[in-house]
Amino acid sequence: MPFIELEKLEKVFTVRRRAGLLRREKKEVRAVDGISFAVERGQMVGYIGPNGAGKSTTIKMLTGILTPTGGRLRVAGIDPARERTRLAQRIGVVFGQRTTLWWDLPLKDSYRLAHRMYRIPDARYRENLDRCVDLLQLGDLLDVPVRQLSLGQRMRGDIAAALLHDPEVLYLDEPTIGLDVVSKARVRDFLRHLNAERGTTVLLTTHDLTDIEQLCSRVMVIDHGRLMYDGELAGLHAVGESERQLVVDLERELPPITDVPGARFVRSEGPRQWLAFPATASAAPLVSAVAARYPLLDLSVREPDIETVIAKMYGGTRDERRESLM
């Protein structure tokens, strides 16, 4: 059996809105609308979409926080809503916008609480803690109150807390949001190591396509509660005809760069120019061509954002797509 299995899963919220001075009307909002997919044990899957698409609602149903309105859901053969306590021993959850750590206590005290709460055997707890501290570079932070940690430090602390009881599946909801480049790299390296060494199943929601590109072999796109794409990231870029951008900083202001094969001039501001190229293509030939022909100071590659990819896949604006799905 698949480790995670969803069949026509639905979640409908009832929203009350004022419709006059003394009258209110009820409206149903379908946050998740008939989603079906299966995830095998040990897979790392990206679950992406624009804000309000239904990603976090899906994660909350997978953990048992929310009860589905309809459909069927199983994680390791368990119904999360009916057996939430039993399932909690087998899953780990990290919400990027919220922390499970105790705000005024040193980081190590939050880990001790998790030790007791999950009833982790002492030897197993020490082994897992040492491993997480080493790989996530938390050694100097264990005695620091959580409120004094930076966002990147706290996020690494949250990930460690979610893994102390050896969960079989890890749900990550925006784990790199707001992190600097170094912190993102550490989190990605750790997740890659965790999956390779322990075979932990990972379901990752993010707005950063680089997270998906570096970690996941499979990506699912959700928009307005419906599963719009399920496959490889390269296939998503191909279907959406998405583009990356090469941002070029020159020594001085020059005419638009239009003589680099495979690149399209987008715009310029003084000595800075933007070139677009297919997201499925390598940036290396473009970088070499620009460096060989122009006085270059710096350059960077920008990934397409989720909104742009989805808009190109299905056409129209976000509001137009919403109407087409209703």
Rank of each mutant, 00 (worst) to 15 (best):
G77S: 13
A19D: 13
L73G: 05
G96S: 09
G139D: 10
D122F: 08
K55Y: 08
V75W: 00
V146R: 02
P68E: 04
R82C: 08
G71D: 03
V146F: 06
R23E: 01
A88L: 08
R41H: 13
M117T: 09
S36E: 05
M44G: 07
P106H: 00
T63M: 00
F37K: 06
P50E: 03
P121K: 00
L149F: 01
D122R: 12
G46Q: 10
S56E: 09
R119S: 11
F95V: 15
L138R: 01
A19M: 15
D104P: 14
L101I: 02
K26N: 07
R119I: 10
D134K: 15
D143C: 10
E127T: 15
V75I: 00
D130E: 15
W102Y: 07
L151Q: 07
I59H: 07
A19Q: 15
A31K: 05
T99A: 06
Q43I: 00
S150W: 15
I59T: 06
R86W: 03
Q137M: 08
A81F: 01
A31R: 00
T99Q: 11
R16H: 12
Y118T: 10
E25P: 12
R84Y: 04
D33V: 12
M61D: 00
R147Q: 13
I59G: 03
L135Q: 04
S150N: 08
V29C: 13
D130K: 15
